[in-house]
Simulated scan of single mutants.
Amino acid sequence: MIQLPKNRKEEVRVRMREHRGERYVDVRTFYMTERGETRPSPKGLAVRADLADALADAIHEVARQDGVDED
């Protein structure tokens, strides 16, 4: 698992998960409760493991662009 700080109260976790026999890369926001417990939020993305490299390439390509998409 890889943990990346998002802000003071949240972090992004990237981890390998399995669901119904299929492997997924799960990228999910976790938050800290008032009791100090870390909980997953519904904010996230699960991608089949065989598509992870293509997604990473797409993220790198978009990050290198100068402009901003307006949708």
Results as ranks from 00 to 15, higher is better:
6 K>L: 03
59 I>D: 03
43 K>E: 03
71 D>Q: 10
6 K>V: 00
61 E>M: 08
38 T>K: 05
34 E>Q: 13
70 E>C: 03
6 K>S: 02
69 D>Y: 15
55 L>S: 11
38 T>E: 03
22 E>K: 15
70 E>W: 03
51 L>K: 13
14 V>I: 12
44 G>M: 06
31 Y>N: 04
57 D>L: 10
43 K>C: 11
8 R>E: 13
33 T>Q: 11
27 V>L: 11
11 E>W: 00
58 A>Q: 10
60 H>D: 05
17 R>K: 15
34 E>N: 11
2 I>D: 00
33 T>A: 03
13 R>A: 00
49 A>H: 09
42 P>H: 12
52 A>W: 09
49 A>T: 07
2 I>R: 03
11 E>P: 00
36 G>L: 09
5 P>L: 14
64 R>I: 01
39 R>M: 05
16 M>T: 11
69 D>V: 15
8 R>V: 06
15 R>Q: 06
67 G>W: 14
20 R>A: 14
43 K>Q: 08
25 V>L: 08
32 M>V: 11
53 D>E: 12
50 D>V: 07
55 L>C: 13
47 V>S: 02
69 D>F: 10
56 A>N: 07
25 V>G: 02
42 P>S: 11
64 R>A: 13
4 L>T: 01
67 G>F: 13
45 L>K: 04
49 A>D: 01
66 D>W: 10
54 A>S: 15
48 R>S: 09
38 T>V: 13
56 A>G: 07
39 R>Q: 05
12 V>I: 15
20 R>M: 07
11 E>L: 02
17 R>W: 09
12 V>Q: 00
23 R>P: 05
7 N>L: 06
27 V>P: 00
43 K>M: 04
57 D>C: 03
1 M>C: 00
16 M>E: 12
13 R>T: 01
36 G>N: 08
38 T>C: 06
21 G>N: 04
56 A>L: 13
16 M>K: 14
25 V>C: 05
52 A>M: 14
26 D>W: 04
63 A>Y: 02
48 R>Y: 05
9 K>T: 08
1 M>Y: 01
45 L>E: 04
53 D>F: 02
70 E>I: 05
30 F>G: 00
62 V>W: 05
22 E>F: 11
